[in-house]
Design a protein around this nucleic acid. Structure first.
Lengths: 216, 216, 216, 216
DNA sequence: CCCTAAACGAGACGGTACGTCTTGTCTTTTG
DNA sequence: CAAAAGACAAGACGTACCGTCTCGTTTAGGG
């Protein structure tokens, strides 16, 4: 989805004009992505229309349709461009601080940032469109899941956690409750909440050292 | 939102025709709700339109607008009607079996039933419309959260769990991971997954008996 | 072509709401027809667009599309409404004055009036669209031809012309040269020109009295 | 209008240059003109598009725009190229046969030939665009009118017709009815019709010899 | 047993946005 | 330096729904 999002992901420096002679206008591309972002923040998901994006970007409608299939493709492209780097978990060399910082960062991203607003809108739309859901996962969620796992993997390497954990399941128990509050209950996701999730996990992992959890 | 959804919750038999003389047509109401449900399952959320609902229900557009403000109001009404009773946790008199059955039921509801499909669509739309999100919470999620808490409360009454738990947080750690898989990762939510969530919780709670968790 | 043009031809006073309940808006209909006329005069045939008609008429595009298939249908309807009565030949009881007045009136209509401008545009478009050409003939030209014939028929009744004339061919020789100048050469079509056409015809007809023309 | 149509009229013999380098590509020019002609015959005037012409000619759009301003310019150029010679009246040394042959030829050209179809399309468009109408007259109609006059002029030289005739008006009475049937009534223009026009004219001219018509 | 007032079906209306199409301009590369 | 390729701004096309409205019909009390 989004024929052009390779440009968002990679560099491809001197690769242009194949059959074509001068390729697309980077200026138009940027204007469209910014317009889409702005409109979402200002008027909400419903207020984003391709017509509105084109008008705000000073671009012809056809130029939007040439490179993106739907408004959600534009939003995804915009989101990937300015939010991909946002959620790298830090590396303090210690599992506890790493997880606490990462969950806190995730909560702030989801509840406070513009990119988080776009993200929530896209998650919402993904519930209505399986093809887009797949694109969202391929373009962002899978990679984010890999980033979520990093603290655990580093802890395993350090010997802080036992090998043989079902990492995916463990991560679900850490980030799942955060998403649950954000997407469903609208309760605040404060530091006390995220810290407590980490505490429970660490406590359980300590016990695992003694042999119980790894054996499941 | 949804002026008419009291009718969905209760029977109110002999309460009708005040200023009016014969009240609304129950036949039309049912036809609309069924049409909305059918359309959602057949053509997805985007394929549901008030125009389409009216046509499929054999009803005038105005009749829909007379009783519901938006298509999501119709869908919510339909959902409340045929899914309200679905998720009552059983009472085996034992916490473990209660939780295992309840989480399993929740997972099946979300991933297998038609009502679950409607529910996911509504959750998705709620990300785009805060007012609707509030209505969805008021109409369903709050009540469901109360049902989710029942097994824990009964366990406390039985002395199986200590008093003083932060129940909301505990429940988030049980249902959060399930919603996370359903709404975000599209990984299967099989019985092994839900059972494991319960196991972890019970293990933690056992330790709490010895005093650690309650002290937070 | 144009489902509504019966209204242009006849009165049909108390005939409304059959399958429908309150029928179409006469106000909208008039606004559309006037807008189309105005646009043609102001900006030419190419400058007439359905979008422009709707905007100028203060009407939704769909309202235009509901009742007319194309912009030329609108223009034809408009033309039929305000020009049908324009070209009735007078009846002086004498063939010469009748024909002179009628041809003069035709020339003025074609070269001076707004309706004539619309008519020329429609004739032009008819060259590009045989179906529309047929509609134009059915809606106007056939009837106009009947009116053109009236002076000759009255003259035959009066005995001023012999019976047995090929009336269609005679009329072609009177009006043909006028249309030729208007549509092709752009030479002025002044009274001298039209009067001369009549003179030639009358001269020929006089001789015909002596037997020559009727014998063809 | 039509910057390039000298090329249609004149020879420019040994001036060729493969694809590029200096000067325009005669190959591209021919391809464009043929494509325009073909499209008009296949899909009608509306179906002719600069975009379509370029595609069908295997030529870039810009190449069309470089040499012609509008699609009607292309069609006019194409028409002038392959139809200019078509309507030269013959010279039998006798007015009657000359006129009969010429009118018959005109009728056939208009109703039967591909070039006639293009011509009718251009006449139609000329009703919508005065500038193009002028170009069409300058490029074709004026010259054709001169050809139409030839039989009469030769007859005057031969003494078969009196000098002092209003030749333009006379010709209008001969060709006007033909165009009238072709452009407006869609009645057949068979030989009986054209022969009769000539007969009437000759009859009138004979009488004119006796003095009446010349005196007007 | 009408009388009355609502709810109803039907559907026209003014609108907004859709996604497509063509126009005429432009920029770049190739031969 | 013309021609091929094709991106671009502009704007009309015809369609689908939106939410509002006005009709005329249906229906079930209350007078």
């Amino acid at each position: 989805m989004g024929r052009a999002n390779t440009a968002a992901a990679g560099p491809e420096p001197a690769e242009r004009h194949h059959g074509n002679r001068h390729g697309r206008s980077e200026q138009a591309r940027q204007a469209v992505l910014e317009a889409a972002d702005d409109l979402l923040v200002e008027k909400g998901f419903t207020g984003v229309t391709i017509e509105g994006i084109a008008a705000r970007a000073g671009v012809a409608k056809q130029t939007v349709y040439r490179w993106w299939k739907t408004k959600t493709d534009v939003l995804l492209d915009a989101f990937l461009q300015d939010a991909a780097k946002a959620l790298n978990p830090p590396d303090h060399g210690d599992l506890g601080p790493d997880l606490r910082a990462h969950l806190r960062q995730l909560a702030l991203f989801l509840t406070r940032s513009d990119a988080g607003a776009v993200f929530k809108a896209l998650i919402g739309y993904a519930q209505h469109d399986p093809a887009f859901a797949a694109a969202l996962r391929a373009g962002y969620l899978d990679e984010q899941r890999r980033r979520d796992l990093l603290p655990l993997e580093r802890a395993v390497e350090r010997g802080q956690l036992p090998a043989g954990l079902d990492m995916a399941a463990e991560i679900d128990q850490l980030v799942g409750p955060v998403y649950h509050r954000v997407l469903m209950t609208a309760e605040p996701v404060d530091q006390a909440f995220t810290d407590r999730l980490v505490e429970v996990f660490l406590h359980r992992a300590d016990v695992a050292d003694a042999g119980e959890i790894g054996s499941r």
